[in-house]
């Protein structure tokens, strides 16, 4: 007969220690997160779990897809969207807890090329047209894509560049097109350049704010849950805002 406790005392001590640490009311929280926010979310989750004792499960994806899934009853507790429209739409349909919706981050669009000196400080490279493909996210449904289209329209280039604009399914794919060298340059999220530490390499132009409507990203609570409220409060806390800023987003004015 094998004694399961024999020689395993240190492990049991560790387990009991952990149980002692864990809160009795610890919950598991399911959060649907827009793909552009995934890296920031990783840091957010580490800190939040340490502070609160709750467990967070992150479901990454496009906001359009998350929206459709939530409409079909997906078991998400919190929705971190890439835009205002989808959370607003959910609120209209009574699928969001009233008063829980707020802007958690403001996205920034950057014209980027991995080639040093290719993108100038004024974005004149777009007018010069000395490139084969320009990557953007799909303007039909990706907020970063819509903003890219607004910039090109404001510069009066949208019509001329059709046929040279490749559209990624989302901003991650647009980024990938540029990084792999398949597109010469592209409009990517500033947060993506922060993630990979590629900002120092290559060349970039941060499009001025007047050229596009701000990319407001909203969060909402979908189900009444203590951990959900705590998580949303954490995002708005100083610690949360600091993480968001450190990933290249602006934070909304208080």
């Amino acid at each position: 007969m094998v004694n399961p406790f024999k020689n395993s005392n240190p492990h049991w001590a560790a387990v009991i220690f952990c149980l002692f640490l864990a809160r009795a009311d610890a919950e598991e929280l399911q959060v649907a997160v827009a793909s552009n926010f995934i890296s920031a979310m990783g840091s957010m989750v580490v800190e939040f779990e340490a502070v609160s004792g709750h467990r967070v499960r992150v479901i990454p994806g496009s906001t359009g897809k998350h929206f459709a899934q939530i409409m079909q009853g997906a078991p998400y507790d919190v929705f971190l969207a890439a835009d205002v429209r989808r959370p607003e739409e959910l609120e209209k349909r009574g699928m969001v807890l009233l008063g829980s919706r707020f802007t958690y981050a403001v996205g920034k669009l950057v014209l980027w090329s991995p080639r040093p000196g290719f993108v100038d400080a004024e974005g004149a490279v777009l007018k010069g047209g000395n490139f084969r493909f320009l990557a953007i996210a799909n303007p039909l449904h990706a907020p970063y894509g819509r903003a890219a289209r607004e910039i090109l329209q404001a510069m009066d280039l949208w019509g001329n560049l059709t046929g040279r604009i490749v559209r990624g399914e989302n901003i991650s794919q647009a980024f990938q097109y540029v990084k792999s060298g398949n597109a010469d340059l592209g409009f990517v999220a500033r947060s993506q350049l922060h993630d990979l530490g590629v900002a120092s390499k290559g060349s970039q132009w941060e499009a001025p704010h007047r050229l596009y409507a701000p990319i407001l990203q909203q969060a909402a609570l979908l189900k009444e849950k203590v951990s959900g409220r705590e998580f949303l409060a954490f995002i708005r806390s100083e610690a949360g805002l600091k993480i968001i800023c450190s990933y290249g987003y602006d934070v909304p004015d208080p």
Binding site: T162, G163, V166, R167, Q173
Partner: peptide
């Protein structure tokens, strides 16, 4: 989806 770039036409 990966290699097309979604260019109409």
């Amino acid at each position: 989806l990966m290699i097309g770039g979604n260019i109409p036409g």
